[in-house]
């Protein structure tokens, strides 16, 4: 069996000091295989966002081990951590987090700029990624000229343009209307069909239904880990691709 994309052991995270100590995570262990589509669910305060930030290498755990494709993240220095975020992880935020006053194209090119990809190749790949999320006609628009759904699709394009092994999405549909939510989830389904490993955080059952596996967090512990579909193959809600709306 191949090395899991993601593997955490006994992960815990404590915020604050003394009386104000908060245990956001209390020993979480999770393994995600290549090609899987995992939804992490939980009420607010359950620690799911904390877990996501640690998985995305945006935050460091108080204790526990975290391996991405066999590499121990805790042993990496700042520089190699940046390379890891750049190459292996694509992150989609709830609030899109595009850089203002930069065109959609420039936003999508940005990770490749930090990754040292040449200008011509960068442009071609960014355009391909934007086309994939159905925004080929919006490449010159700045974030404030795009709707929420369009901004999130730009963010998805930015996350997948470096071909990362792991796509992390923190409530990607939290700020979107129903139609945009459907668009974004469709893109995720397609990406998973084409073999991309996806971990998504949500508190909506509709969104979780798209995943092959649903993990529930309560008070910083995993209380339920249910498989809805095999890790190999198409996600349960995936449809045959249509002409994008």
């Amino acid at each position: 069996m191949s090395v899991p994309v993601l593997s955490v052991r006994d992960l815990s995270k404590v915020y604050g000091e003394g009386d104000a100590r908060v245990h956001a995570l209390r020993g979480v262990s999770l393994t995600v295989e290549r090609g899987d589509y995992v939804a992490i669910m939980g009420a607010s305060g359950s620690g799911k966002s904390t877990l996501m930030n640690i998985l995305g290498c945006l935050d460091v755990p108080s204790s526990g081990r975290y391996l991405i494709e066999g590499t121990d993240v805790g042993s990496l220095d700042e520089r190699r951590l940046a390379v890891l975020r750049n190459r292996k992880i694509g992150f989609v935020f709830q609030s899109f987090n595009l850089i203002p006053r930069m065109s959609a194209l420039a936003n999508v090119e940005l990770p490749m700029a930090y990754g040292g990809v040449g200008a011509a190749e960068r442009r071609a790949r960014a355009l391909a990624a934007l086309e994939r999320v159905g925004l080929a006609d919006r490449v010159r628009h700045e974030p404030n000229e795009l709707s929420g759904g369009q901004q999130q699709r730009v963010a998805v394009a930015r996350a997948l343009v470096t071909a990362p092994s792991l796509l992390l999405a923190d409530e990607p549909t939290g700020n979107l209307d129903t139609a945009s939510t459907r668009d974004v989830l469709e893109i995720f389904d397609e990406l998973n069909v084409s073999g991309r490993t996806i971990v998504i955080i949500t508190h909506e059952d509709d969104v979780a239904e798209h995943a092959k596996r649903v993990v529930r967090l309560v008070d910083g512990r995993i209380v339920d880990d249910r498989r809805q579909a095999p890790a190999e193959g198409a996600p349960p809600r995936a449809r045959t691709p249509e002409v994008p709306a």
């Binding site: 995305g56 520089r79 390379v83 990770p111 930090y114 990754g115």
Partner: peptide, 16 residues
């Protein structure tokens, strides 16, 4: 600062 956070999240090294 937020923009810096975004840039770091998508893999900007400290030197950049």
């Amino acid at each position: 600062t937020r923009e810096i956070g975004i840039r770091k999240a998508i893999g900007a090294p400290r030197s950049a």
